[in-house]
Design a protein around this nucleic acid. Structure first.
Length: 434
DNA sequence: CGTCCTCCTCGCCG
DNA sequence: ACGGCGAGGAGGA
């Protein structure tokens, strides 16, 4: 079973479980490629296979570089690894030049103190304090922008399980092979060019992508052919510490005042031009792929919670969730939670849907003989993605809620009590806003 | 700006 | 046993 690759060494970063819990963070619906095999998490990031495991004081990681340097595979250097990175030899990358530690630091946004953020959110929002403080270690990942974009195009009308399958298919069929763990192949995520071919839409339809096949192929074509190189990366938040020292473009823009630096609003609008990207998908990409912590993705599930726990939407007539309303709800949360509102929302919704970690991970290996209700809870955990199946029919909702309540505190009685904060203002704004 | 339909899949219901 | 229905995000009329 030991592959032909060199046997990599485990290394570790000091990190408490309250600052990062990978079991929660890696399967809460923001990333779709991590696979748990034998209690270790594995994923290809930037051309290398990364394995993770965790104990209360450390995050342990292992790096496996591809044995065959992917000569054809396009480089994937979101950061400024220019001439350095093409086909690194195994030996090279395992020694001093290995940038995996900094990659993980960036990927998990470790420059933020989660304790400090939780404290801030709890101080400004009693509802957050009550529901979310027990759910530590939940982080917004700083993922590759292109991958995030495609993954969340796949997320429309979809659930985590199927999104993961679709992303996996994209990697298998279009991404470079990197390594194997316990007989399972790992590929990197394909570059836009690889998904821009003329046969891609048809092929993806055959693979079960449904109408999203068209969106992916079209967006890949736009990004690879109709946008300048590095277009997506230039939308990233230059002030996001997790992104580190930004590429040269940012420096240019800093010196030239006539070019406006990337902003959340600008990035959001730019993403809306792509196929299959609406406000929610755009916000997912802004938050998880571009480093804009203030982006708050709002789906119907979030909207329901917002109405229930934050008394939003009181004066809203329209039954459909318009763009204007979408923006208003986001503004409201940004007002409450501040600069990392999207992160706060993720934590809150993970807390809301409680359950998971132990229960779900213990049962998820075999879904077939698992109580259906538990599976539902598992799928409902997605925070920012996909559908919330539990909210579908009355019956399912009841079942899911029951199961969830079993796991943790139940809290259906007095939500309205504490949600005052800026309720009035909000309802007013919703009414007033055109 | 709101409405309504389509896309597609899945799970629930009858 | 199977067909209808509806939920979910985006797009288009």
């Amino acid at each position: 079973m030991a592959a032909s690759q060199r046997i990599p060494e485990w290394r570790k970063l000091p990190l408490s479980l309250t600052e990062l819990c990978i079991d929660t963070t890696l399967r809460c619906g923001q990333s779709f490629r991590w696979r748990n095999i034998n209690d270790e998490w594995h994923c290809v990031l930037q051309g290398r296979l990364i394995s993770l495991k965790q104990d209360p004081s450390h995050l342990h990681y292992k790096v496996t570089w591809p044995s065959k340097p992917a000569a054809i595979a396009p480089l994937t250097p979101p950061l400024s690894l220019n001439s350095k990175c093409p086909t690194p030899t195994t030996k090279e990358m395992e020694s001093e030049n290995d940038d995996t530690a900094s990659l993980l630091h960036s990927y998990f946004a470790l420059s933020y103190s989660l304790a400090a953020l939780y404290k801030q959110w709890a101080a400004s929002d009693a509802n957050f304090a009550r529901r979310a403080l027990a759910f530590t270690g939940i982080r917004i990942l700083n993922q590759d922008a292109w991958e995030t974009l495609v993954a969340f195009i796949c997320s429309s009308n979809n659930n985590i399980s199927r999104i993961s399958q679709m992303v996996h298919k994209l990697c298998i069929h279009y991404g470079p092979y990197v390594g194997t763990v316990d007989g399972e192949a790992f590929h990197d995520f394909p570059q836009p060019e690889a998904l821009a071919g003329s046969q891609v839409e048809t092929h993806l339809r055959e693979l079960g992508f449904g109408y999203r096949a068209k969106y992916i192929a079209e967006t890949a074509r736009i990004v690879s052919a109709e946008r300048p190189a590095g277009w997506l990366l230039k939308l990233r938040n230059p002030r996001c510490p997790a992104l580190g020292v930004a590429p040269e473009q940012v420096k240019k823009e800093e010196s030239k005042d006539d070019i406006e630096p990337p902003s959340y609003r600008a990035a959001h609008e730019a993403l809306l031009q792509l196929a299959g990207v609406g406000p929610k998908v755009a916000d997912c990409v802004c938050l998880m792929g571009l480093g804009f912590g203030e982006a708050v993705p709002i789906d119907t599930h979030v909207w329901q919670i917002a109405q229930r726990d934050y008394n939003l939407g009181k004066g809203v007539k329209s039954k459909t969730f318009s763009k204007a309303l979408y923006d208003t709800v986001g503004d409201h949360f940004r007002k409450i939670w501040g600069q990392q509102a999207g992160w706060a929302q993720s934590v809150l919704f993970t807390a809301n849907l409680k359950s998971f970690a132990e229960q779900a991970s213990g049962l998820k290996t075999d879904r077939s003989d698992t109580d259906a209700a538990v599976v539902k809870v598992e799928e409902t955990q997605l925070i920012l993605t996909a559908s919330a199946p539990g909210a579908r029919t009355g019956k399912r909702k009841t079942v899911a809620t029951k199961v969830a309540a079993k796991h943790e505190l139940e809290d259906d009685s007095d939500q309205t009590t504490e949600t005052k904060i800026s309720t009035r203002r909000t309802s007013k704004r919703i009414k007033v806003k055109p």
